[in-house]
């Protein structure tokens, strides 16, 4: 596969431009960042966030509660994807909040609170993974969880669709931590490469590289399964439109 950074692609060099609409994303999410209403909502939410952070600095527990409630589910989902263990993920999420609030004075409001929070959580997740790795000598892939049952989403799902999801998430679990973080933050949390670079504290080009490699691994994994299974191909064709 060719490099993303080839000169004739017509891409912005820094990758900072907001995505106009992402292929493969559900429609609502793909257009979210490009409409004017979305941008004004974003500005309003940032203003509100700054106010909350300001009050939380002063020790206002209601503001802290709001900040926690705003971010806890997304943060936990991210951490859970990173370290694949519910209990550890909950601890890391809690620790991330504790550290964030403990050093709130050093937080600059020119950044998003969520970005800062995710950065802390990512570092803690890596530490947890390292500890696990040093204890077991290898990554724990045995804890990979297939998607759990969910009445809303699985009622109408065929076995093929469930299998497809299982393959995709299984492939995600086998990505390296930065690749997994990049792909989850990009698709699951709707961050662009610039945001991800801030969260992972990596250059944007490195994030693009991680995303590219992660996609190739996912594609190869799907391809190897799809070639063995004609029904998977039909699903892929249907989902891809």
């Amino acid at each position: 596969m060719g490099s993303l950074r080839s000169n004739n692609t017509g891409l912005p060099e820094d990758g900072a431009a907001p995505p106009k609409g992402r292929a493969g994303l559900p429609e609502g999410r793909a257009v979210q960042s490009e409409d004017a209403g979305g941008q004004s909502r974003d500005v309003a939410s940032r203003m509100e966030e700054r106010q909350l952070v300001g009050r939380a600095r002063g020790g206002d527990s209601q503001s802290m509660r709001k900040l926690i409630d705003l971010h806890k589910d997304r943060l936990f989902a991210f951490v859970r994807r990173m370290i694949r263990n519910h209990h550890d993920a909950e601890e890391v999420t809690q620790d991330a909040f504790l550290r964030a609030f403990a050093s709130l004075d050093s937080f600059s409001t020119e950044y998003r609170f969520s970005t800062w929070l995710f950065t802390i959580a990512y570092r803690l997740s890596l530490n947890t993974l390292r500890k696990k790795q040093s204890l077991t000598g290898e990554m724990e892939f045995d804890q990979i969880s297939a998607p759990g049952p969910n009445a809303d989403t699985t009622a109408a799902e065929s076995d093929d669709a469930k299998r497809l999801k299982s393959i995709v998430w299984g492939a995600v679990e086998h990505l390296s931590p930065p690749q997994r973080a990049s792909i989850v933050l990009f698709y699951r949390h709707g961050h662009n490469c610039q945001d991800i670079a801030q969260i992972l504290e990596l250059p944007v080009a490195t994030v693009k590289s991680h995303l590219h490699r992660a996609r190739m691994k996912l594609k190869d994994q799907l391809q190897s399964v799809a070639t063995q299974d004609a029904s998977s191909l039909r699903i892929l064709g249907g989902l891809a439109g």
Binding site: F76, T154, K165, V168, Y187, R188, K219, A240
Partner: peptide, 22 residues
């Protein structure tokens, strides 16, 4: 190839069944 890439992204973005709850 593109379909596989798009499908992977679609599943990761939209699969609501994977997130545990706090």
């Amino acid at each position: 190839d593109l379909a596989l890439l798009e499908v992977a992204g679609h599943v990761i973005a939209s699969d609501g069944a994977v997130d545990d709850q706090l």
